[in-house]
Design a protein around this nucleic acid. Structure first.
Lengths: 193, 193
DNA sequence: AAATTCTATTGATCTATGTCAAGTAAAATT
DNA sequence: AATTTTACTTGACATAGATCAATAGAATTT
């Protein structure tokens, strides 16, 4: 149940065996079937979720009913609406499982208690945030500078696991493209080879 | 020299007077004149900069020579290329002062030493990263869902200080628009009133 | 104060991507 | 196995925003 989590933690910091045992007690295991939701738009996001198995997406919906995917999370990644989670505000995002998934959940209180009791857990969280910040910065730069085709090929190079595993129209949504445009972009790429 | 910095820290955590004194010794004060650079594209970003006074931007350049602004930083904000700063890689960004500015610089080593010696400084860094993450997430969602006009009005509402203080074509660049398009968007808005 | 550079505006035209609609194949559900 | 839903593709057409070019006022620099 905790393999992926401890792998993720140990890549960044060192915990004592006692700390690891303590750590376990704070997480709530949760299974989600495909299409089940961890968070619904309008609700308050009370969990920070670590993905042990499966894949999830978070997305917002515009007035026309179009979904816009802001994040994917596969094994070893975290997902939440941080803004809603930290400020108890209503979320504008929905978080949904794209496959049957196994999660480890932290409430705000559990997360804070863990950080107070285990300083290295706070460091782990900081290091995660640094990586997420860098990834988001890169994505913003990509949105500002790249064409549809560049966005798609670069995503495929950076995260082949996600592009292979997720329906194409969701990749389009994540890149800010329509499914039709992505289909045409892919056609152009294959025609060129 | 340290007013803004301690204001920023004290909004998030509590430091003892001794810790505050210790803290000061790690920062390098630096003044930049308008148009001077803190970081040039291709160089390694060796500083994490806190803005005591003034305003800076970080931007990337595409093949056509167009600049794309990824961040502004005014008094009380931090700016760096985190990816380059943390991994000693060559930066794809340039960081430049838009007005005469006063900065407090931290090297990677100084930042790490501070976090080791003052746990609350690490917490402060984590809380900064959380806020930055939320802001970046919002910007990604904005890029995916909003029209040119919505982007502009929302930015003006969220950060009036920046929109007033910076040339219009730089606001356009930050929003991923051409200066011409932003000019037309603004005209439409005023015509409508 | 003259010269230069920067900034914003406007018009004409272009283009990348979006929209709408139809058709097929594959997957999931009953 | 049949039905329904989901996924992807393709064509025709529309449009938001980009590009190119010209102008003019402000702000800087000399």
């Amino acid at each position: 149940m905790f393999q992926q989590l401890f792998k993720s933690i140990q890549e960044k910091v060192v915990l004592t065996p006692e700390e690891m045992e303590l750590c376990k007690t704070f997480f709530i295991p949760k299974k989600l079937r495909k299409k089940q939701m961890l968070l619904q738009e309008g609700d308050i996001c009370i969990y920070n979720a670590f993905v042990e198995k499966g894949i999830l997406r978070s997305f917002s919906m515009d007035e026309k009913g179009n979904e816009h995917i802001v994040q994917f999370a596969i094994e070893g990644w975290w997902i939440t609406d941080l803004s809603s989670f930290l400020t108890n505000s209503n979320s504008i995002y929905t978080i949904e499982a794209l496959e049957d998934s196994e999660l480890l959940l932290l409430t705000t209180e559990a997360r804070e208690a863990l950080m107070d009791k285990i300083p290295m857990f706070e460091r782990y969280q900081r290091l995660l945030l640094q990586n997420a910040y860098i990834a988001n910065q890169a994505r913003i730069n990509s949105a500002l500078t790249e064409t549809a085709e560049e966005k798609y090929t670069n995503l495929g190079n950076a995260y082949p696991g996600i592009v292979k595993r997720v329906p194409q129209h969701m990749i389009a949504s994540y890149l800010g493209l329509t499914p039709e445009t992505l289909s045409r972009v892919r056609k152009q790429i294959t025609n060129r080879i």
